[in-house]
Each structure stands twice: as structure tokens, then as C-alpha cells.
């Protein structure tokens, strides 16, 4: 079980696309920083519909996206730490 993290916007590169190519069903995905902007694309939203997905709450709120993304699982920094422990490893793309 791997926790994959994406911190960059899809407008800035292909990090998320690469990650999704090599991610497995049992893995999880955490979006933080500008990685959260990925969910503003309907296509990517659709692509991620079957993925175990977390968003870092502070980064969502900081961007004023709390309402737009309220359907997703928001986590605190403490939860983030817990996730890094409950997964075998973290891959930061």
C-alpha cells in the first residue's frame, strides 16, 4: 500500500498523470498545495472517481475551495502523518 502525493497543478506538468499510470488499486492519493487544483478539472474528477483520495484541508481552505470540493475527504496535518504511517511508503511525485 503506497500513499502517493501530488503537490503541483496539472497546468504545470504531468505529475498526476504519471502517478495515476503507476498507482495500484490498493494505493491512496493525497493532493496538497496546488495539487488540489487537479479537482477543478471535470475530466480529472472523473478519472479519480474510484481512487482513495484525500485533500489537505488547510491547503483547500487557503485556496477558497472548501465549498467547491466539499464532497472530498479533507484531512489535517495530523491525519497526514497517520496516513504516512499506515501506508508502506510515500511516493512524492
Amino acid at each position: 500500500m503506497i500513499l502517493h502525493t501530488i503537490q503541483t497543478s496539472p497546468a504545470k506538468g504531468n505529475r498526476l498523470a504519471l502517478c495515476l499510470r503507476f498507482m495500484r488499486e490498493q494505493d491512496s492519493l493525497l493532493l496538497l498545495g496546488d495539487g488540489i487544483n487537479s479537482l477543478l478539472s471535470p475530466q480529472i474528477k472523473q478519472q479519480l472517481s474510484n481512487t482513495t483520495l484525500y485533500l489537505l484541508q488547510d491547503d483547500v481552505n487557503a485556496r477558497g475551495l472548501a465549498n467547491a470540493l466539499m464532497q472530498y475527504d479533507m484531512i489535517s496535518y495530523e491525519d497526514f502523518v497517520a496516513l504516512t504511517i499506515s501506508h508502506n511508503k510515500v511516493i512524492n511525485w
Binding site: I2, R21, F22, M23, R24, K89
Partner: peptide, 17 residues
Amino acid sequence: NDHAIQQKLADADEVLV
């Protein structure tokens, strides 16, 4: 291939991108 890469990422202790 991609599948073999997935397997290698899963088998590693640490992966750095």
C-alpha cells in the same frame, strides 16, 4: 512495461522521484 514498474515501486522500501 508499466505493470513491471508498478511491481518494482511496490517492492522497494523507498521510492524517490
